[in-house]
Write a protein that binds this DNA or RNA. Structure first.
Ligand code: SF4
Ligand code: SF4
Lengths: 137, 137
DNA sequence: TTCAATTACTATCTTAAGGTAGTATTAATA
DNA sequence: TATTAATACTACCTTAAGATAGTAATTGAA
């Protein structure tokens, strides 16, 4: 009952970059050191984020990374989607989920409310909302 | 954002046994076949449940498994606890969770409500609640 | 007392996530 | 143009969950 390591890293990376809005580019070495994420693993994640159009990368000397959109327009849900960590509408709490509406266990209806709250939270929270409070995650 | 395979299996196994209250013992072969859980993996899980005192086992011919307590007294949360799949009070949505109360991201407070709903649901739902509706999970 | 049916134990294999290593490519600047 | 600092690519290693295999221990019944 937890996000993958990779998703957690991605969120922290993006939040960090969002928070550095003054400095145009942030490089992998800095991200790795400040966020304590293994350098090589971090660059792998960055490449994914570049391909998914969340991050702009500049290669070569003086290069680095920047957000491709405004931090208020990148939602936590967008990040979770990339790493297959978001909550699907049909997803069963237990992960079993081949029960139909006709025949549901006692958890089925109880799961609706927290599920919708979580989906809404992920869908409506932007990087701007989780960064920029002076302390890093 | 999902329970482990093992937890899912354990819940389904226990719910199945709860549903067979008429037949005193259920054996591993039957459980494996009816629930489509690999036999050897299932017996490994059963041994854990026996050690954790949720299941009573009888070895030898005519042996099998039975619930050790009434199905209304075994909670889903008890099962999740065994396989380290329950939601801890201090657990952060993102799994990051080294932020203190002084300095919280926008998700921190929003997570409280769904978290409490889920914890309550797991704590208060028994095997009896999820089994015995005529259809198996 | 032997056999067959059952659970328990120990060791190993497989898979996917997480992580590492080395090299290629790119681009600013001396 | 050569150097250097950066990202990108490809391949591999590690770890833990998931799954399998073989054998031992237990027990009811022929
Ligand atoms: S009825 Fe229960 S097990 Fe089936 S999909 Fe709904 S929550 Fe999951
Ligand atoms: S502030 Fe945000 S990142 Fe930190 S523990 Fe709370 S929810 Fe998690």
């Amino acid at each position: 009952m937890q996000l993958s390591n990779t998703s957690q890293y991605a969120i922290r990376i993006l939040a960090y970059i969002a928070d550095q809005a003054d400095s145009p580019l942030v490089n992998a070495t800095q991200l790795s050191q400040r966020l304590h994420i293994p350098y090589k693993f971090l660059t792998k994640i960055m490449t994914t984020l570049v391909k998914k159009d969340l991050i702009l990368s500049i290669r070569g000397k003086e290069g680095g990374y920047a957000l491709k959109r405004d931090s208020s327009e990148i939602m936590v849900g967008d990040i979770l989607d990339i790493f297959n960590d978001s909550i699907q509408d049909e997803q069963c709490v237990l992960g079993i989920g081949f029960c139909n509406g006709m025949c549901k266990c006692a958890l089925h209806d109880q799961w609706m409310e927290p599920k919708h709250l979580l989906q809404k939270m992920f869908r409506e929270s932007s990087l701007k909302d989780i960064a920029g409070r002076g302390c890093k995650i």
